[in-house]
Write a protein that binds this DNA or RNA. Structure first.
Lengths: 159, 159
DNA sequence: CTTGACCTTAAACTTAACTTAAAGGTTTGG
DNA sequence: CCAAACCTTTAAGTTAAGTTTAAGGTCAAG
């Protein structure tokens, strides 16, 4: 399979596939006599795996560490463990989001049933002061922690 | 409150806070006689709000469009509207996370349900037939669509 | 035998979201 | 008075994850 066909099959761009090869996510591929890359059918699986892992929030660095270069001898146990770990992270975030949402919904209800005679700005202030020290702040830092799970901290920023 | 205290309180770096001001996420702040920035207590709430939205997967551009510039002057209606908006944001993230999780779980199941006696290469072929044309392709584009909500489409690329 | 669709490389460019550096002013404690 | 610990600005650097560009080779069709 040429790179064009792989690109169509996988839905990724030519440049992206070549890029993945360059950075070592794909092992160096066989070449035809003319120099064209010649991919085996498994390449589609590999790309699907990479793309799915990316979807799930893995960086290419993490993926490189996780996914063995050779699909044939991937280590099921380690891979599965990592994937399960990622699911746990997502679940933790989901739980926190559900809490935040519940808090917000409660807050909205509270505002809507505002007692007459209290003026708007005071009421807004009163209600707003509930947010930051409550679940909001904790959710924020906790979520930050979740995001860093298993990642070596980079010297500077994120993309 | 000086920027140092705000940094400690919010957990964000000085440079990051100044950066947010520069790019218009924070309204230009009051200055003391010596030129130092002087923040009101609400600034902590504002930063927490931004950080949370970021946690939720929103870009600074999206956040700029969603979060009202002045927290204190929220009036009743606007406050409610913003809170409802926040709930919508959370729901959007929940959808995103659910999708990520579904993708992961599907992948795990695919790997785990490998029948005994089937060797790895055959398993790879089995995955080949399941993943790419099935939920993988749809999930990928759907997630991309979610990601594009409310964004003007860039010429290409995703950083 | 040329046109267009394909493939090659290397290197430069892009974007987001910051950080770091350089060079300096201010405030506070000993 | 002096150092440490704050604060200021502008400008340039960094990272991830690619894309784009330039300058070609190759191949199938008409």
């Amino acid at each position: 399979m040429n790179i064009g066909e792989l690109a169509t099959r996988s839905g990724l761009s030519h440049s992206r596939i070549r890029f993945y090869e360059r950075v070592g996510l794909l092992k160096t591929v066989d070449r035809q006599a003319n120099g064209y890359r010649s991919y085996p059918p498994e390449a589609v699986v590999m790309l699907a795996l990479i793309a799915t892992a990316q979807q799930a929030g893995f960086s290419l660095d993490e993926i490189r560490a996780l996914v063995p270069p050779d699909l044939v001898k991937w280590e099921h146990d380690a891979l599965l463990e990592s994937l399960h770990g990622k699911v746990k992270e997502i679940e933790a975030l989901q739980a926190r989001l559900a809490q935040s949402k519940a808090g917000l919904v409660a807050l909205i209800k509270d505002i809507e049933t505002k007692p007459d005679g209290v003026d708007c700005e005071d009421n807004a202030r009163r209600l707003l002061s509930r947010l930051p020290s409550g679940e909001f702040a904790r959710a924020t830092t906790a979520a930050a922690d979740v995001k860093m799970l298993g990642k070596k901290r980079r010297p500077a920023r994120r993309g």
